[in-house]
Design a protein around this nucleic acid. Structure first.
Lengths: 160, 160
DNA sequence: TATTGTTATACTCTATAACTATA
DNA sequence: TATAGTTATAGAGTATAACAATA
């Protein structure tokens, strides 16, 4: 019988055998996103991770460092330098918690609030650039899928 | 007028303000994927990037290092240690190209082929674990979207 | 004893400049 | 001169152990 789908032979070497793997494609996509978002945030004196921390503290005033680390899924030691950076830029304050003098209550300053609001607009524009060509429904599905993948991974680590 | 969708106030602090951003969710998802795939590949003496390199060389025998670096989107200096690792494990060979004695022609060994085939099964199982709960159509859309995002980022860097 | 934030440290991944040997 | 592979190095991101202050 004749082959119904004759294979097109390409001269160019490629990564065909990896294209079906989620992780491989996600690594490449995330690398591009990280380059673009950091370039987007640099004018504000922010990086992806400092931006994320700033937004979370903004929406959760008085948050403790350990809570922030938990929310952002980063280790406590690594958060220290992130907050140093934000504090030295004048974007947030570490205030001793009155009820527990081991802990710091985190608050975004007026300057930090202003910068964060502008940075959010820039990041939203970055998101639109990076996801150009995807419909709203597709974008929503992608985000839902990413959150599902993260959850699958986290559950696999603890109970699997 | 009464609010049609009364907001449920949660006591728990969270990252609500970041959940709409693709990059933030992708970073978290990819972190989980990377942990899982590296744990999956460790028994084979492979990492995510050495596995990728092995598969590409397998499907493109005689490939040059610079071509492989181009395909995998990694810098030539970083590929050197990756190939050192694969060569020392006995999974591939670097043969001097007869027509250009500056270059190496890469070939996967019989041992490398056997390991790669088993590793591919393990990685496919890892993919299914990580994407559990997504339909085939959703998974395909996610991969297409990831490739689109990478392309958007790459085009933004060169011509934008 | 346990917890909060911190320091020190190490390992991975990525990026750039400069070298060598060929072309 | 230009290119292929290499070396050296620096910068992020992430992980663990151990410490001081406080609970």
């Amino acid at each position: 019988m004749a082959a119904p789908h004759p294979r097109i032979v390409t001269a160019e070497p490629d990564d065909e055998g990896l294209r079906g793997h989620v992780g491989y494609n996600m690594k490449r996509a995330f690398h591009m996103i990280q380059l673009d978002v950091n370039a987007t945030l640099a004018p504000f004196g922010l990086r992806m991770v400092t931006f994320s921390a700033l937004v979370v503290v903004m929406e959760n005033p008085g948050l403790r460092q350990s809570q922030l680390a938990e929310i952002l899924a980063i280790e406590r030691p690594n958060l220290v330098v992130i907050l140093d950076e934000l504090e030295q830029a004048g974007f947030l304050t570490r205030d001793r918690a009155p009820d527990d003098r081991r802990a710091y209550a985190l608050h975004v300053t007026a300057q930090g609030l202003a910068v964060a609001e502008e940075a959010r607009l820039a990041v939203a524009a970055h998101d639109r650039r990076m996801t150009a060509g995807l419909s709203d429904a597709e974008l929503e599905l992608v985000i839902t899928a990413l959150r599902r993948i993260e959850r699958n991974g986290r559950e696999g680590r603890t109970s699997g």
